[in-house]
Every structure is written in structure tokens, then in C-alpha cells.
Design a protein around this nucleic acid. Sequence first.
DNA 1: AGGATAGGCAAGTGGTGACTTGCCTATCAA
DNA 2: TTGATAGGCAAGTCACCACTTGCCTATCCT
Lengths: 97, 97
Amino acid sequence: MAQDVFKALADPTRRRILDELVERDGQTLFEICARLVTKHGLGLSRQAISQHLAVLESAGLVVVRRQGRYKFHDLDTEPLERIATRWLRPDAREGTP
Amino acid sequence: MAQDVFKALADPTRRRILDELVERDGQTLFEICARLVTKHGLGLSRQAISQHLAVLESAGLVVVRRQGRYKFHDLDTEPLERIATRWLRPDAREGTP
DNA sequence: AGGATAGGCAAGTGGTGACTTGCCTATCAA
DNA sequence: TTGATAGGCAAGTCACCACTTGCCTATCCT
């Protein structure tokens, strides 16, 4: 399940969403939609963003926190800290003899 | 052109190729094909690997070095060092006021 | 020169992913 | 209770991507 982090990062819209969550954590779906339109000019349907958030959530990059009829989305950078170090040269990695 | 790094990393076969190049730099197309078969059991055509290498090259992750009829592929981890730090929290980044 | 090795070009196919549309459920406010 | 707000489910379309197949070019060896 954490292997899909690469697939989740492949889409530019999802990267924009991550950018938004870095800037302001705990946004709802409608907030993210509004921000993508006003700040980035992305005219996507609400459902499209919802599906993107589902991909990010299943990749472990976004954590959901429900409260009443709201659903807040928080960023989790923990999966990101592991992926890039995978191909660093042996002399630059930590756990190599 | 360096923006396609995410797209290049999205495919598992391409990640295997990067794994191979980390372990042994400067391999030719046929070497990579043989190693993917014997070590990972990937039975792909030579052309498929060639196309994957083209994607990795255009993403800047692989640098090509021609010599006679051989074409050696070297890994370049430089694009990798920038992508993961994009979404690190502001207090963990370097160049933020 | 001729064969063998290393690689490239181009068209075609199947499957997956991004996006939309339409309708449905749940919570809050009046 | 009714209407408005926040979100979910499901099917359908369309384009892109991974992979194959067939043929072609270039370099090396004898």
C-alpha cells in the first residue's frame, strides 16, 4: 500500500493538492477545490478532486479526520522521506557497510 | 523536462532498472535486459526496456555514454535529491524565511 | 566482404487512469 | 421538517501508457 506513493505523485494535480496541504493543513474537500481554482486556475469537478484525495489517502500521504459533516485532510510526509533515499549512492546512504 | 521525474518513477519496471544501475553503473541495454530476467524474473522485450531507458534519460535520471556500438547507461541521482524535499514541513526546509 | 552483435524506428494493441455526469446519503440551521 | 451544505457511489468516456512485432542501421570480428 505504501508502494503506490510513486503512482500517487505521478499526477500533477495531486502534487498541487499536496502543495496546498503543505501551506494549510486540515482543509476540506470544498476548500481544496476552491483554492485550486482561485490560486492555480484548475477548473476540475469536485468529484475529480475527491478521487485524487482518495489516491493520496491510500498512498498514506494524506490522513483523514472526520468531524460532523466535515472531512479534514491532513498531510503526512512520512512516506516521502523514504522514497528518494532508495537510489542514493552506497557511500551516501547510512546503513551500508 | 525535469518535471517528469515523478512520471518516470511511477512505473515499477523503471524503478527496477534504477535499482540495477545503483548496483552496477554503466550497463548496456542487453546487460540490463539479462539482469532483469535472471534476477527479477521480468520477461520483457528488449524494446520495452529501451523505451523505459528513454523515459529515464529524458527525466535526467540516466545519462548515456556512447562508445563504439555500445551505449552505457549511468545513473544520475541529482534529480532525486530535490523532489522529496518539496513537501517537507516549512520548519524542516532550508530556504524558508 | 560477410556474419554477428548492439541498438533504433514506427505502427499497432490492450489496459489503466483521469475526468465527467447523475443521483444518493448525511449533517446542520431555520 | 424542510432546505442547504458537505460528501459518496457508480457508470461511462477518452486519452495516454506499456508492451509487442517487424524491419532497419551501425559497429566489430574473422
